[in-house]
Write a protein that binds this DNA or RNA. Structure first.
Length: 418
RNA sequence: GGCCCCAUCGUCUAGCCUGGUUUAGGACGAAUGGUUCUCAGCCAUUAAACACCGGUUCAAAUCCGGUUGGGGCUACCA
């Protein structure tokens, strides 16, 4: 039975690196019909915070990485003490002040790693290890070994920053006569500036990506591509396909640099393939306005192909929801400095006539007028766009007009008729 | 410093294990052109890499060694 675990410490939020480790563990569990276990490493009482735990749990849920079991190390303190005392009795550890320290035996240690192959260590470079600190709490390496054994973890899949911890842990497994799990170390994710991802170096909480309008499936897809490749030059891949093709042996040994550009592209791809209903639901909570869902949906359709994140929608589409729109000064200067009262009022007249207001009809009406006025349609299109949206860029004008509706369009055009 | 891990376009990667099929493939990003009412989108094209040195071999991105570079650990943090 495959049993893997993700062991976050609630001393900070979940970021890209942690999420990737969690994802690979989860993937491996699913692939092998095993269990994915969450173990909260909250032994550092001073630094562990409830809000971080909530954030981590919430992010995992959002990504869809559901766990089968959950444990808290803070609730298992007696267990660690009991095991440490066992080593004390066997003379494999000693007391120092109030701490219990493991006597590290001198020997060579071979680690069989699923991803790296055999790695060789000499324990003479390792000094004696504290198991239980003076305050009674266990150290990371000790609690980790006890729990991995007691929770019957079959495969320890973790960041390669733990490679040097592994020989220390193996020594403990041996001291207890524990069965040793399989190890698989996956490369870290590095910041653009170099060095591991950290708060100072590009590590952003997953919850922040969510707030910025990234889709969970886009994040997961991006994470999948960091250190692993589905083959056949595939970039966009579903979780189900990933589960089918995932192999630890095929995970890269090379650390990857987190690249926002690619994430952005993947996010835009997912927005494009998300159906309008769901996209509307996703966008709705980001808006401060109280609006009609059908109206929102028609606006969403207009922006779907141009969005990188959902947040862009709130930035670019605000004029659809505001009563009084802001006209960008440069836009006004460029397209509305001349008096277009005549052209605008003629357009208003045409729009006031009872007729369908779909984009095609609007275009015919519009182009009919410019032809009659003997001007290039672009000469009127740009000013009208500015009058209606306050901007020089945006979706096609006839679609904008159609979605805004007769009332808003006429009202906004009137403001520029003297 | 010591110990350990890693090394293909700017970035993510395929190829490496099982040397010849490679003028090293794809994607992001960049540049250029096309479509067009703007911006996107879409389409097309282009530039862009086997870190270096040595060895093995008829043949090396692929195997071996070293150098350099990057990363990690070296806590009574996890």
């Amino acid at each position: 039975m495959v049993r893997v675990r993700f062991a976050p410490s609630p001393t900070g939020y979940l970021h890209i690196g942690g999420a990737r480790t969690a994802l690979f563990n989860w993937l491996f569990a699913k692939k092998n019909q095993g269990k994915f276990i969450l173990r909260v490493e909250d032994t550092d009482k001073k630094r562990s915070k409830k809000k971080y735990l909530d954030e981590i749990l919430d992010s995992l849920r959002w990504l869809g990485l559901d766990y089968d079991e959950i444990y808290f190390q803070s609730q298992r303190m007696e267990i660690y003490r009991e095991f440490a005392e066992k080593l004390l009795v066997e003379n494999k550890a000693y007391q120092e002040n109030k701490a219990i320290v493991f006597k590290v035996p001198t020997k060579r240690i071979n680690i069989e790693d699923l991803n790296r192959g055999v790695m060789e260590f000499d324990s003479s470079f390792i000094k004696d290890q504290v198991l239980i600190k003076s305050d009674g709490t266990p150290t990371y390496n000790f609690a980790c070994v006890i729990d991995d054994r007691l929770l019957e973890i079959s495969h320890v899949i973790r960041g390669d920053d733990h490679i040097s911890n592994t020989p220390k842990q193996i020594l403990l497994y041996e001291a207890f006569g524990f069965k040793i799990p399989e190890f698989c170390h996956i490369p870290l994710i590095l910041a653009k500036e170099g060095g591991r991802l950290s708060k100072r170096k590009g590590a952003v909480a997953l919850s922040d990506y969510r707030k910025k309008g990234y889709l969970a499936e886009a994040i997961v897809n991006y994470l999948l591509l960091l250190g692993w490749s589905p083959g056949e030059d595939r970039e966009i891949i579903t979780l189900d396909e990933a589960i089918k093709n995932f192999l630890l042996e095929r995970v890269n040994k090379t650390p990857a640099i987190f690249d926002l550009d690619k994430l952005n592209w993947i996010n835009s791809q997912y927005i494009k393939i998300t159906d309008d209903e769901r996209l509307t639901d996703l966008v709705l909570p980001l808006l401060k306005y109280k609006i009609d869902r059908e109206y929102l949906k028609s606006v969403v359709k207009l922006f779907k192909m141009r969005l990188t994140t959902l947040k862009d929608f709130t930035l670019w589409g605000d004029y659809f929801f505001k009563k009084r729109i802001k006209i960008e000064p440069e836009a006004k200067e460029r397209y509305l400095s001349e008096d277009l009262s005549y052209e605008f009022s003629r357009l208003i007249e045409r729009f006031e006539e009872p007729s369908s207001f779909d984009p095609e009809t609007v275009e015919i009406t519009f182009r009919g007028l410019t032809e009659e006025l003997g001007i290039e349609s672009r000469q009127l299109i740009h000013p009208v766009r500015v009058a209606l949206t306050g901007r020089t860029i945006g979706p096609g004008l006839f679609e904008i007009i159609s979605v805004l509706g007769k009332e808003r369009v006429i009202e906004r055009l009137r403001r520029f008729v003297k």
